[in-house]
Design a protein around this nucleic acid. Structure first.
Lengths: 195, 195
DNA sequence: CGCATCCCGTACGGAGGCGTATAGGGGCTG
DNA sequence: CAGCCCCTATACGCCTCCGTACGGGATGCG
């Protein structure tokens, strides 16, 4: 019979459990919320558990950043990458990525802690990976290399700004179904137009 | 003769001095750095001074947010608003605003503390003010009202994303003088194009 | 059942931040 | 120059968090 150690308190924890909970906390309250004792409360356990699985708080931060990076680059990109047509792949990105990440505050929150060396490194890697990916699609679409790169940066900044706005002032973004659709059309038309 | 109470330690401070220093700290280390005792160290004074000028830390946070809001909306907009031609006004925005704000991390840092009610309110106000301003310019340029609004949001998100990138991964943005110029041209052409 | 290993609970010391109380110094005004 | 008011220094208690020490319960295995 399976262990059936439910999800309530009292069960044994793994390092993974701590990382998962830290990821949630990171999104909710920033890097400052990736703190041992508060997390212990959330997990209904104590520090004693934490310091068994991790050397210290820094180790947890490293782990949570690494996990975020994985879920992100690999997860999202491979989810869209099986579409052969580059234009439709891009359209999928425009539709799928916001749906998957607009609610996700981590990206935006992390920039606030960019002084943290590990955070800065993770952000750099993720950003470059994504822009390279968009650049490649634009190149497939026939844009010359340098123009593709510039457009990719523009496209990515607009995406970034959108998730930024989503948290800073969601009211200004189109809310209704139709409004959102029209907005998406405008964005696509503008960002992908060719003379 | 003027007071000549230099800038060194030992001089009397005003609430304004605390707010100015807090503004710097906010940019450097986020809201968490708007902390009484660390600021006292930077100002080479003690908490005793602070709690004379302010009721508590919250009061300082409110003051620093208000000051940021002023420096921002009023400052930047009135600096560009005397240009009569709307297209050139927009171009000025594209050139002037990044130059003035790309080095300024406060906007980006604040989103990380959007759970703070005062922060959320300030961000909403500033954002709406700016987008309204851009919308108005686009309307002057002849875009229909709803399209103007959509484009303004797109333009603003791209700007936001750019200052975001500037801190998250400055390497991916065009660095050289010429590259930057070409990038700006691409951005303007794409974002302002009309069929 | 007995026992070793794994994992957690608890208690402690230290650091840093908030807010308060209170004494005192320095400059302005008469 | 005397006194008063504005501002600052110092000391204190409290809270939250980090990290360590160590005791002890649970769990799997023979």
């Amino acid at each position: 019979m399976a262990k059936d150690q439910g999800k309530g308190a009292g069960r044994r924890l793994t390092a993974r459990d701590w990382v998962d909970e830290a990821l949630i906390a990171l999104g909710e309250g920033g890097l400052a919320s990736v703190a041992v004792e508060p997390l212990a409360k959330r997990l209904k356990t104590t520090k004693g558990s934490f310091y068994w699985h991790f050397a210290n708080r820094e180790a947890l931060i490293d782990a949570v950043l690494q996990r975020w990076e994985e879920l992100n680059t690999e997860g999202v990109i491979t989810a869209v990458n099986d579409e052969p047509d580059p234009e439709r792949r891009l359209r999928n990105l425009f539709k799928a990525v916001p749906a998957a990440t607009d609610g996700d505050p981590i990206e935006v929150v992390l920039v606030g802690s960019v002084r943290h060396p590990q955070v800065a490194a993770a952000l750099r890697r993720v950003t470059e990976r994504r822009i390279d990916y968009v650049t490649q699609i634009l190149a497939e679409l026939g844009f010359p290399a340098d123009e593709a790169r510039r457009r990719a940066v523009l496209i990515y900044t607009s995406h970034l700004g959108q998730t930024h706005l989503m948290h800073a002032a969601p009211d200004v973004l189109p809310a209704g179904r139709d409004d959102r659709k029209r907005y998406l059309e405008t964005v696509l038309e503008v960002l992908l137009h060719r003379d």
